[in-house]
Amino acid sequence: MNSLTTAKGGVQRGVYPSGAPQGYGDPYAGYGQAPAAAAGGDRPMTVDDVVAKTGMTLGVIVAFAVLNFGIAVFVSMGLALILTAVGAIGGLITVLVATFGKKYGSAAVTLIYAAFEGLFVGGISLLFTGMTVGGSDGFVLIGQAIIGTVGVFLGMLFVYKTGAVKVTPKFNRIMTGALVGVLVLALGNLLLAMFTGSNPLRDGGMLAIVFSLVCIGLAAFSFLSDFDAADKMIRAGAPAKMAWGVALGLAVTLVWLYTEILRLLSYFRSN
């Protein structure tokens, strides 16, 4: 990430590159005018801020994931399942608050999200590796999912750095449409499972495998938008606290990617 703002010609802070898109719904659109964007005594954001805040966020996720996993193994599976549901719902509500409540860049919102999502990740990891595949080699499956997630992250960072895929307003519109489509399909599948017992997108069959591959692909390309957000905000001299917003976006994408990879691996293992 250290090379993001130097890989494109050394653009001065506070000024977007010539011809770069501005203001396509990004929370940092107002920071492209001048270094005065960091008004109010808040220093400009740096790559170190993004790395540090993201690291703290992921650390909280891992800690709460281990906590819930331990509760399931040593205390009560029922309690762990309740905490998993609380984590899923709480994480969703927290992201909605950050998005629509104009809390982008709030350390409290990002860390609360991390705590909720950690509970969810710990519980869902146990479900996919325990109940789904009979507990065989569960930790190996989790390790493979983590390695896959890190690999995709680094690969997409390389893709962004080299400019192999350009993040443009059109790219973001296509990504938004695809994400909405996946969300509608997932909600429809959930309602179908609740009322009919049929679960075609998550039953481990060929359609479920294809759907998981699509989700993994979308999560991977979502990293490009996250990197572009961090890149432009650093170039524009956005306030340092906005690094918490970048950390939130990266954490959301990482958790989604990890769960989809783990789900896909569980399909193959159970089959």
Rank of each mutant, 00 (worst) to 15 (best):
N2V: 07
S3H: 06
L4T: 07
L4M: 14
L4N: 04
T5D: 14
T6I: 06
G10W: 11
Q12S: 13
R13S: 11
S18E: 15
G19A: 06
P21L: 04
D26F: 06
P27H: 08
Y28T: 08
Y28N: 04
A34I: 03
A37C: 12
A37D: 04
G41N: 15
D42L: 11
R43M: 09
P44W: 13
M45N: 00
D49I: 09
T54P: 04
T57Q: 12
G59K: 00
V62F: 14
F64I: 08
F64W: 10
V66T: 07
V66A: 13
L67V: 13
G70V: 12
M77S: 07
G78S: 09
I82N: 04
I82C: 00
I82L: 05
V86S: 03
A88P: 01
T94K: 11
V95R: 12
V97I: 14
G105A: 02
G105K: 02
S106R: 05
A107R: 11
L111R: 08
I112V: 13
A115Y: 00
F116H: 06
F116Q: 01
F116C: 15
E117F: 06
G118Q: 01
F120L: 15
G122K: 07
G122A: 08
S125Q: 00
F128I: 07
G130F: 04
M131D: 00
M131E: 01
M131W: 05
G134R: 07
D137L: 13
D137Y: 11
D137H: 14
F139D: 10
Q144A: 10
A145Q: 03
A145C: 08
I146M: 11
G151E: 08
G151I: 10
G151Q: 12
L154S: 03
L154R: 02
L154H: 02
L157T: 10
V159F: 12
Y160T: 02
Y160R: 15
K161A: 12
T162G: 05
N172S: 15
R173K: 13
R173Y: 09
T176D: 00
T176W: 03
G177D: 00
A178W: 05
A186Q: 07
G188M: 00
N189W: 08
L190A: 14
L190I: 04
A193W: 07
R202H: 10
R202T: 12
G204D: 03
I209H: 05
I209Y: 04
F211Q: 02
F211D: 02
V214W: 02
V214S: 05
A220Q: 05
F221V: 15
F221G: 04
F223P: 03
F223T: 03
S225Q: 09
D228M: 03
A229F: 14
A230L: 09
D231R: 14
K232W: 06
M233P: 01
A236I: 04
G237T: 08
K241F: 08
K241P: 01
K241C: 00
A243N: 09
G245A: 04
G245M: 07
A247W: 03
G249H: 01
A251H: 02
W256F: 07
Y258D: 03
T259N: 14
L262P: 05
S266K: 09
Y267T: 01
Y267W: 12
F268L: 14
F268N: 03
R269A: 14
R269K: 15
